[in-house]
Simulated scan of single mutants.
Amino acid sequence: MTNLFTRIKNTIMADLNEALDQKEQKNPIALLNQYLRECELETEKVRKLVERQYSLKEGFTREYHQATQLAEKRKHQADVAKNAGEVELYTFAVQEQAQYEDRAIRLKEALEQASKQLLELEQKYEEMKHKLKDMNIRRLELMGRENISRAQHQINKVLDNSTYSDRSYSRFHEIEAYLDRIEHQVNSSYHRNTIDARIAQLEKEMKKEETAANL
């Protein structure tokens, strides 16, 4: 039965890895974005742990100061009771003082441990933030290179007839021929209008000369 479960687990993991490989080959940037989102979630979890550790440290600090103050208070009360000859009060105050002092010792150790753990968490959190920032910068760099690669590929397809489809290339050829026709029409119209204007001017001048000769 164990071997069967192991084979099923291995089969599922193999299928999952194959699916991830196919996804990476199809769109590596999308997979990278997914990984970064997961890293952001993990970083956010650590941030919340840091905040919680802050709260714990503050709690230990409050309890430690309170226990210390109460121990001092009971010590003073024990001295007063002793001087007054109140044995019962003295005994009670001394016992209370000892309990508060023991509690203060435990709280001090817990506070030191919490402070140490908080420092470690803060360092890890800052390290994770820096790594996340660096990975985001690398993602932008990769996206820039991928974009240039795709753009260059499209440019090469357009400019290189051997790798571009006949239909798309013929479309460019049609546009070039159309521009040639327009240019020819414009040039012909320009020359025609120029010739007409010149001949009309010549006819006008000749008429003036004939009129002057007849006078």
Rank of each mutant, 00 (worst) to 15 (best):
I8T: 06
K9A: 08
N10L: 11
T11P: 13
T11A: 14
M13L: 11
D15T: 12
D15A: 14
L16F: 06
N17S: 03
A19M: 01
L20R: 09
D21W: 12
D21K: 15
D21F: 13
Q22E: 15
K23A: 15
Q25V: 15
Q25F: 13
K26V: 04
K26S: 14
N27P: 01
N27L: 07
P28W: 02
P28R: 00
I29R: 03
I29A: 05
A30S: 04
A30R: 00
L31I: 08
L32H: 07
N33P: 01
Q34H: 12
Y35R: 09
Y35A: 02
C39G: 08
C39Y: 02
C39N: 10
C39D: 08
L41V: 01
L41G: 08
E42R: 10
T43M: 06
T43L: 08
T43P: 01
K45R: 11
V46L: 05
V46Q: 05
V46Y: 00
K48G: 02
L49G: 05
R52Q: 11
Q53H: 03
Y54Q: 04
S55P: 09
S55C: 02
K57N: 04
K57W: 03
K57Q: 09
E58Q: 09
E58K: 03
F60S: 06
R62I: 05
R62L: 05
E63W: 06
Y64K: 04
Y64H: 03
Y64Q: 00
H65M: 11
H65S: 02
Q66W: 00
Q66I: 07
Q66A: 02
A67P: 04
T68D: 06
Q69W: 10
L70K: 00
E72Y: 02
K73L: 04
R74N: 15
K75I: 08
H76E: 12
H76F: 14
H76C: 13
Q77F: 11
Q77V: 10
Q77T: 12
D79P: 04
V80D: 06
V80K: 06
V80A: 09
K82F: 12
K82V: 09
K82P: 07
K82L: 14
N83P: 11
E86D: 11
E86N: 15
E86P: 12
V87E: 15
E88F: 14
L89C: 12
L89F: 14
T91L: 10
T91V: 13
F92H: 14
A93V: 04
A93E: 03
V94N: 02
Q95M: 08
E96N: 12
A98H: 04
A98G: 06
Q99H: 13
Q99L: 05
Q99N: 11
Y100L: 09
Y100W: 09
D102N: 05
D102V: 08
A104C: 01
A104H: 07
I105K: 13
I105Q: 11
R106M: 04
R106Y: 07
R106S: 01
L107R: 05
K108P: 05
A110M: 00
A110Q: 00
L111T: 07
